[in-house]
Design a protein around this nucleic acid. Sequence first.
RNA 1: GGUCCCGUGGUGCAGCGGUCUAGCAUACGUCCCUGUCAAGGAUGAGAUCGCGGGUUCGAAUCCCGUCGGGACCGCCA
Length: 593
Amino acid sequence: MPAKRTHTCGDLRAVDSGADVVLHGWVHRRRDHGGLIFIDLRDRYGLTQVTFDPNRNPHGHSTAEGLRNEYVVCVQGTVAARPSGTTNPNLATGDIEVIATTVTLLNAAKTPPFYINDDASVDESLRMKFRYLDLRRTAMREAVVLRHRVIKRMRDVLDRQGFLEIETPILTASTPEGARDFLVPARLHPGEFYALPQAPQQFKQLLMVGGMDRYFQVARCFRDEDTRSDRQPEFTQLDLEMAFVDEEDVTGTIEALLIECIEAYSSKRIMSKPFPRISYADAMARYGCDRPDLRFGLELTNLTALLGTSGFSVFRGAVEAGGIIKGLVVPGCAGWSRREIDGLTELARTFGAKGLATAAWLPEGIRSAFRQHVGDEVMGRLCDGMGAHEGDLILIVADREATTNAVLHRVRDHLGAKLGLADPEVLALCWVVDFPLLEHDEDRGVWTFTHNPFCAPKDADIHMLDTNPGAASSKQYDIICNGFEIGGGSVRIHTRALQERIFHLMGYTPDQVQALFGTMLDAFEYGAPPHGGIALGLDRIIAILCGASTIRDAIAFPKNQVARDLLMGSPSQVTDNQLAELSVRVSLPISRT
RNA sequence: GGUCCCGUGGUGCAGCGGUCUAGCAUACGUCCCUGUCAAGGAUGAGAUCGCGGGUUCGAAUCCCGUCGGGACCGCCA
């Protein structure tokens, strides 16, 4: 048995000089001078230089000659201050080294398939396949540690405030609407299935009815939809619900929680505290989306009135078809090449625009394809109205309202990154509020919820449910950080009558409502307290805090873009016996020829 | 379901119709070297360019298909 570890590789300092220590770890790097050999020994706490001198310790030196990267060793030795001039200020332990007296090889290692002692980029599928090696690298280790610390702090903060952490089932019932469910066949009940929870929504509301008036959970959620760089089939939420509260109680709790966690564990600067509150309508008007990146301006201007009756058929046609015209000013970019403009136009097309109208304010005047159609007088008012100056580039989209907003939103985000306006060291957190409660589903001819069906309408708007449901606002709030939705919640409906009215608007029959939501509606009849809550996307929050471009870098064992786990090889086929036990028969789609 | 990008020694890149008998860096092997910390020096091995088909006198390079990976649209209460 090798000696017990006395210190980690991040512990030792000059004051420890003279101490006999035992370190365990991986060989991070070996520098062999023929005589002296230096080993940087690594564990998750840091690096410590171990020195092997052939004159003082011939046996240890010869062992060290055989060491290679990623070998696992136990080193016994004496801490010594490094000779002057040989300290390493880049290393926390750089003032000392361990003079080895005994080194024991605990395990050899094959040459790794990619660099572990280097931050160079590596093909992600290779990292996934060897995730246990990737986790040894600095970026993943720091993300995993940060994730632990943030979640730990969240638990502590909530515990201090009287919240109870309560687990809810992973095997539960399929719920309609929302995302596609992951299903689990129920062996004991052939032909029936559990569903994995998309969120613990109904459970947490039932906990409120059950008197657990402050609940939270670090909850795994499952949604069987296509992945994105910020979406995984399974992901983690900080799920939370409170009784006897209004919107301010929930948002205030979360705001304090986030500020504490960010300021404790991130060097990034929060742009403004308290977090600004922006109405949904305002966000759509100024940024074209309900999750604006507030780190930079480039705000949108509505040009429908100015250009809608102009002589330019593209503008007039869009407005006559019920659409809108909006634009934004790109400061100092009038000189952009045709190629750069084409790139933007291509981007706009990706999001459904037919084109992008541009006007470049050059020293010799305004160069624009539509200038002659709208006239110089309108052109002047356009520049004034948008606050443009000489040297600026104006971008305009005329289309259906949804398309115009979507396109300009993406163009704006693209420009924010391209022009370096989106400071990666800044966290622009904000709340988006005053969402519409319902939106009309054109295909099915019914109203559908914008957030979830349990979200309460604003008290003042309840009377509109019968007359003009689309105008009613809800008690929903989303929290946005740098253009990412990192959480959302609402004050809920807590009476059967109001909840039934909402379901009725959504086109459910009373029988359907009872079958799908009967449990919760019944519960509401037994003294349900007013309540509200929120869920934070922890993976996204961690990814933002560690500067990762995908949440996969914030998850120890993520799935790839087609929802495969390249490490464990899931999903995978199962045996006929397993299927038979579950009363499941596989019927593969007919493959294309 | 769709669009786009990528696929060259272990890793990261270059090459984009003949000069490629495929280049560079690093890793790896061997040797030298007592204060390095991305140690240094010498030397060696290692890829028929994801796969299949086509165009061409000639393909890593062009085209089509396919597989794998990624970004996005749809989807994601």
